[in-house]
Design a protein around this nucleic acid. Structure first.
Lengths: 205, 205
DNA sequence: TCTTAAATACCAACTAGTTAGTATCTTAAT
DNA sequence: ATTAAGATACTAACTAGTTGGTATTTAAGA
C-alpha cells in the first residue's frame, strides 16, 4: 500500500504516519501500540512524542493521513473532467469497483474502524469521523445532483440519501472482503448499486 | 439492550458475557479490558478466568453470545411463518428497517467489529467471523430462493450475491448510524434495498 | 563570510500505571 | 470429604508518556 505524505512534513513524521496507518488499518486503534508504530517506522519513542503530543493526537493525524490517501486513489482517474453527468457517475463508480483489483488500495476504511472503536467513548474522534464520512459521500452527491439536473428522474431522487446509501454499501463490502480475505464482493456490490441507480433514472443502456 | 443467555450456564457467566458484549460493542475487543468486564459484571477476575481460559476465549464466547442476541431479535417477529415468499421477504426486511427504532437492538455488529480488529492478525477469529457473517446472509438467501422459484425474474438473480449485498448495506449503515448517533439511515437504506429487489423482480406494487 | 545563537529534529533510558494471567484461598453444596 | 464456584492477592510483561539529553539545520550579526 503506497501512502502519500504531506510534503511539508519531515521524513520521519511521514514514516510514523505511514506505519500508524498500516498498523491501525490492520488491527484498529486500540490494537496498535505506540511502540509498534515506532518499530515499524524505524524511529524511537522520543521522536514519536516529539511529533505527536499523545497517541490520540497521532490517531487524529493518521485519520487525516488516510483521507489524503483516499483522495489520491480517487484522483488521477479522470472522472472529474467528464462532461456528461451520467458518464461521470459511471466512471466514478468504476473507480470503486476497480479497488477490488488495486493492490495499493487499503483493505479497510480507517474512518469506519475508528468510528466503531471510539464513537461512543470519545466525542472528538466521533465528530472527526462523522465529518470525514460526510466528506466521503460528498463527491457522489454532487455528481448525482448533476445527473438529476440533466436527466430528471420520473420520481424524485434524494441525492444525499443515495450517496449515503452507496457509502454504506462500500463500507459494508469492505468488512465482508476483510473477513473473506477476498475483495470480489467489492466489485459485485458496486455493480448492484450501479444497476439500482440506473433503474432509478430509467436509463436503458 | 437486553441480552439472552443460554439457560444452561451459570448466572455469573451470563453476566460476564452480557458485560463483555456491551463493552466490546462500544469499544471493540482491544479497547475492552478484562478488569472492566469483571467490574461491569460485578464479578472478580478469578471467576472470569474460571469460566474463560483467556481473554481470547471470552471474545469467542462473546461472539456466540452476540449471535444468540441477533437470533432472538430476528425471531418472534413471525416472518418465518408467512407462506408467500414475496410477502415473507418484505416482512424480513421490515425487521431490519425497524431496528432503527428498536432500543433493544445493538448499535453495532460485534462480528463486523472483531473482523476489522482481528481478521488479519488472528486466523481463528477471522474464520469464526467469516462463518458468522455467512450465517447472517443465509436466511435472506433462502427467502430469495423461494421468491425466485415462485416469481421467476426476467433476468437471472443470484440469491447468494444479493443476500451478501444486503448484508453489506446493513453493516455499512450501522457504521454511519454510529458515527452520526442517529439510526435513521438504517431504515432509509433498507428501503433502498427493498426498492432494488422490487425492481429486480419487476414487481409493481 | 565567518561565527554563534537558537530553533529543530531526533534518541536512549526511564517511570508510573495498566494489562492479562496465576496461585492460593474460601465457601457452599453434594 | 470432595468438588464446583468464586474471591483475594498477587506478578511479569507491557503500556503510554517523560526526561534529559545530542546532532543538525537555520538565521542573524560582525
Amino acid at each position: 500500500m503506497t501512502t502519500i505524505s504531506d510534503p511539508n512534513i519531515s521524513v520521519k513524521k511521514g514514516k510514523l504516519l505511514d506505519a500508524a496507518l498500516s498498523l491501525m488499518l490492520s488491527k484498529g486503534y486500540h490494537g496498535t501500540t505506540v511502540d509498534e508504530i515506532c518499530a515499524e517506522a524505524g524511529v524511537t519513542k522520543g521522536s514519536f512524542f516529539y511529533y505527536f503530543k499523545s497517541k490520540e493526537d497521532a490517531g487524529k493525524a493518521t485519520l487525516d493521513h488516510f483521507e489524503r490517501l483516499q483522495s489520491h486513489l480517487l484522483s488521477g482517474t479522470g472522472w472529474e473532467r467528464i462532461a456528461d453527468p451520467w458518464e461521470k457517475l459511471n466512471r466514478y463508480l468504476d473507480v470503486f469497483a476497480l479497488m477490488a483489483k488495486n493492490p495499493d488500495a487499503p483493505n479497510s476504511c480507517l474512518t469506519a474502524l475508528i468510528t466503531q472503536e471510539m464513537a461512543e467513548s470519545n466525542a472528538e474522534f466521533c465528530a472527526l469521523c462523522e465529518e470525514k464520512l460526510a466528506g466521503n459521500a460528498k463527491p457522489l452527491k454532487d455528481i448525482l445532483d448533476e445527473v438529476i439536473a440533466q436527466y430528471p428522474p420520473q420520481s424524485p431522487v434524494d441525492s444525499q440519501q443515495l450517496a449515503d446509501y452507496f457509502l454504506a454499501v462500500y463500507q459494508g463490502s469492505l468488512i465482508l472482503a476483510k473477513a473473506r480475505r477476498n475483495r470480489a464482493v467489492l466489485g459485485q456490490n458496486v455493480e448492484h448499486f450501479r444497476m439500482y441507480v440506473t433503474a432509478l433514472f430509467h436509463i436503458v443502456r
